[in-house]
């Protein structure tokens, strides 16, 4: 399918919100790929971090929504530290998660977690997991 590119799409609420929530100039990214090259979770991602940046630039919200990447992001800040253009990619990832979470949608549902898992996991992992993955 050919994607229709227009100023409407490039200036959609989605792009504006991501820019606003992350506080980043999304168009600074010149696609060098250094973020993906160093991402410790990259092996498990279906779309790499640099591709996420490109999809945001193009306003392709659905492609990002269908991907697990932003939820796999560990917020370790490796990408942020390495970006040659000074883009704080972790904030962009956080902004993308917030778009979902602010609609009161949880990525993991605490009430539906099996009791064994809750019992097995360390407290600190649960707390940080809930902070990142629930609204």
């Amino acid at each position: 399918m050919r994607v229709e590119l227009s100023s409407k799409r490039l200036r959609s609420d989605f792009v504006k919100k991501i820019a606003e929530l992350s506080g980043q100039n999304l168009y600074l990214c010149y696609q060098c790929g250094k973020c993906s090259a160093g991402c410790p979770m990259g092996f498990a991602m279906d779309i790499l971090p640099n591709q996420i940046m490109r999809l945001v630039q193009l306003g392709l919200e659905e492609d990002i929504a269908n991907s697990k990447t932003v939820w796999l992001c560990a917020s370790c800040l490796t990408c942020t530290v390495r970006c040659p253009r000074g883009v704080d990619l972790s904030r962009v990832m956080e902004a993308l998660r917030l778009l979902t979470l602010r609609k009161n949608k949880n990525y993991v549902e605490p009430s539906k977690m099996p009791p064994e898992t809750v019992a097995d996991l360390p407290q600190i992992a649960l707390v940080s997991g809930f902070r990142k993955l629930t609204s």
Binding site: R2, E4, S6, R54, L58
Partner: peptide, 15 residues
């Protein structure tokens, strides 16, 4: 204009 964004792999149509 029919083009492509090879970075995301999307075929594009720009008006």
């Amino acid at each position: 204009i029919w083009t492509v964004d090879t970075l995301s792999g999307k075929s594009l149509e720009i008006t």
